[in-house]
């Protein structure tokens, strides 16, 4: 994917770019999906790129409609979820913990 800054968002999206996005998003998409998604994302991106038509240079961005900041609750101990219940929905557990597949792949594994 190219990374020029502030490029006007009018250009389409290539199949290779979609493959890159899928990797970033941890989606093992198939070759057939790449073809479909590339075409569809291209249509959607061209439609949403219309936001670029709005002259909004000095307009502050809105991330959230409710202007609340630093919301804290009272520092009072409350009952938390029992460990067994927290683990009950996990695909795999070991010794009262979530079990994850190994972190390093073969090439990275120092042995």
């Amino acid at each position: 994917m190219s990374h020029q800054t502030d490029r006007p968002p009018a250009a389409g999206i290539s199949r290779a770019e979609v493959a890159h996005l899928a990797r970033l998003a941890r989606l093992a998409v198939t070759e057939a999906e790449l073809d479909t998604f590339a075409g569809q994302l291209d249509v959607i991106l061209q439609a949403v790129a219309r936001v670029g038509e709005v002259a909004a240079g000095d307009i502050p961005p809105t991330s959230h409609a409710v202007p609340l900041t630093n919301v804290l609750r009272e520092d009072e101990p409350i009952q938390c979820l029992p460990r067994d219940e927290a683990l009950a929905g996990a695909p795999d557990t070991v010794e009262g913990r979530f079990r994850v597949p190994r972190i390093l792949s073969d090439e990275e594994d120092p042995g």
């Binding site: 800054t5 490029r7 770019e17 996005l21 998604f37 936001v51 670029g52 709005v54 909004a56």
Partner: peptide, 30 residues
């Protein structure tokens, strides 16, 4: 869901952020 995840990943990626997500947030203000 896959389409939207990839669309969002694109809109937030370095180099596109200002033109897409940032601009959309300004439009939200308007």
């Amino acid at each position: 869901v896959k389409r939207r995840i990839m669309l969002g990943t694109y809109a937030l990626s370095s180099g596109y952020y200002d033109a897409y997500y940032g601009q959309a947030q300004k439009v939200r203000t308007l």
